[in-house]
């Protein structure tokens, strides 16, 4: 094999990596923003805190990251969780209502955080119960909470937009730890925990095997019920955390609007990161790249002075394109058009 061939082969291997296109898109987008708006890539230190566009993007990408990590695991099992947006609203409402009743102390804030997370965990467990024990289709089971959940959040806040003050709680969303924004630290820690949980144990592999071939996994002795249940519980928990991180800076529990359509963001970052909606193989690194990409797109819309109302439209189109691209029929049609490439791949 001669040298140019080697380069070509390596290049092809690189472009075939599942993260190649998302990373390439991210880099291109960042460079474009940098070129259009000089200073985009600058990071400054003020008050020994980091500031700048890249820091903001990191901070905002934490919400989709947290949602995406949970959603990614659920999708890997061949399911879906449509309730994450509503769970965000519920856990924030629970936390803020607790603070509202108990005052702004740091201990109260911590308790509020824990109560909010426990609520989310309970909801996730409930979803898992419906899916595994009762055998209800995942989208129906979680759809019930997708809308009823907002009613529950309204119940918690008694229909008000509960506004309260607790510097400690607020700092979860807007503070800094050693100069780094708190949400970024939270995101990094959660990512590390989830990565260890799924990849240092066999959880990840078993979840993938269930998602790829449920019957073969069953015959190999894998018991899907407990695993799938766990995954929905984790997804609920992370959605609750996302709601608190996302809503803490505002200190206002707006049950109708917190987390509205965030299901879309969660599904988006998962598919952008190269995980297929049919289940099976998943990529946590892909979720990280996907959430950075999504946030950068949102930021780029502002930088390029595009009306921000267009963003959801753009997201929906991306989702449709990704769905169609994953379709076997379309792939067959396309590969049929490119016989030469097929042949090369076969050899």
């Amino acid at each position: 094999m001669n040298a140019p061939n080697n380069v070509v082969a390596n290049l092809r291997r690189l472009t075939r990596h599942h993260l190649f296109w998302p990373v390439a898109a991210l880099v291109a987008l960042v460079l474009a923003c940098g070129a259009y708006s000089p200073g985009f890539l600058d990071v400054t230190v003020a008050d020994s805190h980091l500031f700048g566009q890249p820091v903001d993007i990191l901070r905002q990408s934490v919400t989709p990251l947290l949602l995406g990590l949970g959603m990614c695991l659920v999708i890997a099992t061949g399911g879906i969780d449509l309730s994450v947006g509503a769970v965000m609203a519920i856990s924030l409402a629970v936390s803020l209502t607790f603070i509202d009743a108990n005052g702004p102390g740091t201990a109260t804030a911590l308790t509020a955080l824990v109560i909010g997370l426990i609520t989310a965990l309970v909801i996730g467990t409930f979803n898992g119960f419906l899916v595994t024990v009762l055998g209800i289709q995942p989208f129906i089971a979680t759809m019930i909470l997708m809308v009823a959940g907002r009613g529950v959040a309204m119940l918690v806040t008694k229909g008000q937009i509960t506004t309260t003050a607790s510097p400690a709680f607020k700092s979860i969303g807007s503070g800094f730890v050693l100069g780094v924004p708190t949400p970024v630290v939270i995101g990094a820690v959660v990512l590390a925990i989830v990565a260890v949980l799924v990849r240092r144990t066999a959880l990840g592999m078993l979840v993938e095997s269930i998602g790829i071939n449920r019957e073969a996994s069953r015959l190999a002795g894998v018991r899907a019920t407990g695993l799938i249940w766990t995954v929905y519980a984790i997804c609920g928990l992370l959605a609750g955390l996302a709601g608190i991180v996302y809503g803490a800076p505002t200190m206002a529990a707006d049950a109708n609007n917190i987390g509205l359509m965030k299901e879309l963001d969660a599904i988006m970052v998962v598919v952008l990161g190269g995980t297929k909606l049919d289940g099976g193989k998943f990529s946590l690194a892909g979720v990280v790249v996907g959430s950075l990409l999504l946030t950068t797109i949102e930021r780029a819309v502002i930088i390029f002075h595009i009306p921000s109302q267009v963003t959801p439209l753009f997201k929906a189109l991306v989702l449709i394109v990704v769905c169609l691209a994953a379709s076997e029929r379309l792939r067959r049609a396309v590969t049929g058009l490119l016989p030469v490439r097929r042949l090369q791949e076969a050899s």
Binding site: I80, L82, F139, M143, M261, E263, L264, I267, L277, P307, Q309, V310, T311, P312, L313, F314, K315, A316, L317, L319, I320, C323, L324, S327, E328, R329, L330
Partner: peptide, 26 residues
Amino acid sequence: MVQYFDVQPFIASLAAMFLARGLCNV
């Protein structure tokens, strides 16, 4: 999307839901 591209109905209609909401904003 459902019939010819084998997209699951809830995903296809979810995508359409987000598309419609996006158009609303526009």
